[in-house]
Design a protein around this nucleic acid. Structure first.
Lengths: 202, 202
DNA sequence: AACTGGTCGTGACATCTGTCATGCCCCAGG
DNA sequence: CCTGGGGCATGACAGATGTCACGACCAGTT
């Protein structure tokens, strides 16, 4: 009995290459490939794969949100996240969304097929190095608003611009930013964005 | 006659997957894989591949610098850059360094083997969409110092920190920053970093 | 009912940033 | 030899930013 796979990654070359790699295994078969997050659910409904391999960084719908959707429409489909960045926050959010496994792209190629088999067997697969980091980093200490404000500050916008975008007064934006800067242990807006983003809090 | 390939990418999974994909072609053979830029030259000297596929983002030595080294120690080896980011600046710098081809990772998987064959045949392979962008963006307008200062500002450092790091006075740093902001058409430091980085100028 | 934490706002303050004018040094090109 | 451009620096100024104190409102706890 072969394990039927869905493969989602926005980079066509990587997607094709992973498909080639996985199809080399006699017990695995890639039945559908998609290049955008919002194409995942339709493909799941059409092909009913056993395991869905999702990248986190995708246009449309990111891998985390796609995971939740897949779990909702097809509970029997296991989700294995395959991502470039081992952000601690990604792991936590992926598991909360119902992912059965989490693998970073610099694990040896040979292990991927194993990870797929374990996930299919109902086991949980998590990158060990990442698991400990994730416990240390923990949940985001930022409130909803602080997160929104920091997110809006990512592209270098000024306080005035952020205020207009979120329909807040400039003073309020400054307060939220100040609070976020404090919580992240940063010295200014830019550092706060970098560290918060690094933890996957944005 | 098979074309012998070197494959360099820091993500083991992607590297293995690309190898699997390329080895499916009867006329191609991946003879060596490396995961860091500074491992490229030794591998070239040992295996004398016909074509080297290099990622731009690699630890140790980046793909651009590695390209120049490969051309120097083994002129008969053709270099094909395979990268995630289609930064216009990357293309220009890669070609200047002696690369024979430049492919982004979201091109269809089937085209990669073709690109390899063309490069091996002595042709130049360049992503068409990127080629035009590159002409528009052109060379970096930033001077050496401006580039250094902007690079130092990437992590959100303050003027004082940058000044200490580069052994400059704070006023000078502000002047260079101001000039860089003007040249990039940005409104502040953070935007300048983002756009300059986007063009591959840093 | 009192307390807590998040949100929103104001006003005030010190500091940081970005800009500009000005000057000096060095070097390559006309 | 003169000129222009880049690098370096200083001083001055306006505006942006980060911090703080304070008050108000609302949803939950206790």
């Amino acid at each position: 009995m072969t394990i039927r796979l869905l493969l989602a990654d926005d980079q066509a070359l990587v997607r094709g290459a992973l498909a080639a790699l996985l199809n080399l295994e006699s017990d695995l078969e890639v039945v559908t490939e998609v290049g955008a997050g919002d194409a995942v659910v339709p493909a799941v409904l059409e092909h009913h794969p056993d395991v869905a391999l999702l990248d986190v960084e995708m246009p449309g719908l990111d891998g985390i949100a796609a995971t939740a959707e897949v779990r909702r429409v097809s509970p029997s489909t296991k989700v294995l996240i395959v991502t470039t960045f081992g952000r601690p926050g990604y792991l936590r959010r992926a598991l909360q969304a119902g992912a059965a496994g989490f693998v970073v792209k610099d694990t040896p190629a040979a292990q991927l097929a194993d990870a797929v088999r374990r996930v299919h067997a109902g086991l949980r697969v998590v990158d060990p190095a990442l698991a400990t980091d994730s416990l240390v980093a923990g949940e985001s200490p930022l409130t909803q608003r602080e997160t929104e404000v920091l997110r809006a500050a990512r592209d270098g916008s000024s306080v005035a611009t952020i205020a207009r975008k979120l329909f807040l007064s400039e003073g309020t934006v400054r307060n939220h930013l100040s609070s976020a800067i404090g919580k992240t242990g940063a010295a200014n807006r830019t550092e706060a964005v970098i560290t918060a983003d690094g933890y996957g809090w944005l």
